[in-house]
Amino acid sequence: MKIINFGSINIDHVYDVDHFVRPGETLSSKNYAVFSGGKGANQSIALARANADVLHVGKIGLDGIWLQEKMEKEGIDTHLVKIVKAPTGHAIIQVNSEGENAIIIHGGANLTFKSSDIKEALKSANAGDIVLLQNEINSVDKILKQTKDKDLKVVFNPAPMSDAVKEYPLELVDIFIINETEGEALSGEKKPMKIIKAMDKLYPKSAVVLTLGKKGVIYSQGKQTIKVDALKVKAVDTTGAGDTFIGYFLAELSRGKRIEKCLKTAVKAASICVTRKGAADSIPRLGVDV
C-alpha cells in the first residue's frame, strides 16, 4: 500500500530564544540553524523513516533543490516534486526555553499546485492507497474532490488551521488527524471528548485522531474509542512532533496493524522527536530509535 502525500516543502529558519518576541520588541536569539521542513515534507520523512512506501507530490523553487535531494536520500519517491519560478516555502520558527515553538510560514512554491498536478499524481494511485493532505498547500479542495471517484483512503491534517478549511468538502475525508486547537475550530468545542462527539456528528463516516500533547491521543470512529497516554519525556523542541506522529501512525496503518498498535507506535516516535532539536532532523528511525 502506497501513501501519496500532497505536501508542503519548506526551508526552516530556527531561532532559540528565552521567550517569544513581543509586539514592538527586538529580541536576540541564542542560536540560529537552518533545517528542512514543511509539514508535508516532515510527514513524508517520518513515513520513510517508519519504512512506509511514500510518494511525495510537491513544489519547490531553485533554492530548494537540496530539500528534494535530502528527501530522495530518505527513500522517498520525489519524481513528482517539481521546480517552479516561485521561491521555496519557508518558516521562521522561534523555540523558547521550555521547548515550545511559535511559527510564521510563507507558502511560496507550495501555493502553485494546478489541477494537472493532481491528475498526474492520482494516475499512479491504486485501490486502497492512502492520500495524505495538510493545509500548507493550495488546491486542497480540488484534491479531495478528485479522490472521490477512486477507492482511496483520504487522511487530512488541517494544519495550519484557517477559515477556508470549513469550506472544503470535508465529508470526503476518511481520517481527520487534529490537535485540540484544530479540533476546537472545526467542532466549536474545547474539551477533548466534546470535540470527539461533535466531530462524530459532523462527519459520521470519518474517523478522528485527536492529539493531546502531554495528555496523549484519542481515536474515535463510530462506537469505537481508544485512548493512549503520552510517554513522559523532557521536551527540548516540539517542532515536528505532530508530523512524526502522523507519519508513524499511517505507516503502521498501511501495514494493516490494529489501531491501538498504530497509536502506541506513533506516540513513542513523537516522544523521541521532542527530545531533539529541529523538525525533519529530529524524526526517529524505525528499528533504530523506535
Rank of each mutant, 00 (worst) to 15 (best):
E100S: 13
H90A: 01
S124W: 07
A91S: 14
E120N: 15
T112E: 13
V81I: 15
L133W: 10
G128F: 09
N138A: 05
S124Q: 13
V81Y: 06
V140R: 05
S97Y: 04
D141T: 09
I137Y: 11
I137M: 05
E100K: 15
A109T: 15
E120W: 02
E136C: 09
L132T: 04
G107V: 15
I118F: 07
V140F: 07
I130G: 00
A102H: 12
V84T: 14
T112Y: 04
Q94V: 08
I105E: 01
G89T: 11
S124N: 14
S97I: 13
S115D: 15
G89R: 03
K123G: 04
D141P: 07
I103F: 06
K114Q: 14
I130S: 01
I103R: 00
I137R: 03
I83M: 06
V140S: 03
L80G: 06
G89W: 06
L122I: 10
L122K: 10
A91Q: 06
L80W: 02
D129S: 05
T88P: 12
L122S: 06
A102M: 12
K82G: 07
T112G: 04
E98W: 00
E98S: 15
L132F: 13
E136G: 14
I103P: 00
E120G: 07
A121N: 03
L133E: 03
I83S: 00
L133C: 09
I137P: 05
Q134D: 09
N101F: 14
S116L: 08
K82Y: 00
I130K: 00
A127N: 08
V95M: 01
T88K: 05
I92D: 01
I92M: 05
N101E: 10
V131S: 04
V81M: 15
I130E: 01
N110S: 08
T78E: 02
Q134P: 10
S139C: 09
I130M: 02
K82L: 11
I118K: 12
S115Y: 09
I93Y: 10
F113C: 11
A86T: 14
G128H: 05
I92N: 05
N110W: 12
V81K: 08
G89N: 02
Q134C: 09
G89I: 09
G108A: 11
Q94D: 02
I83W: 05
I83C: 06
T112S: 12
I83N: 02
I92T: 01
I118Y: 04
E100W: 03
N126G: 10
I137E: 02
S124L: 14
D141A: 12
N135F: 07
Q94G: 03
V131G: 07
I118S: 03
G107W: 12
E98H: 09
I105T: 15
K85A: 11
E120V: 12
H106T: 11
K85E: 12
T78H: 01
S116N: 07
A86P: 04
I104M: 12
G99I: 09
G128E: 03
E100H: 13
L111R: 14
E98D: 15
A127S: 11
I92C: 04
S97P: 00
H90I: 00
K85S: 14
I103M: 02
E120L: 13
H106G: 13
A91W: 11
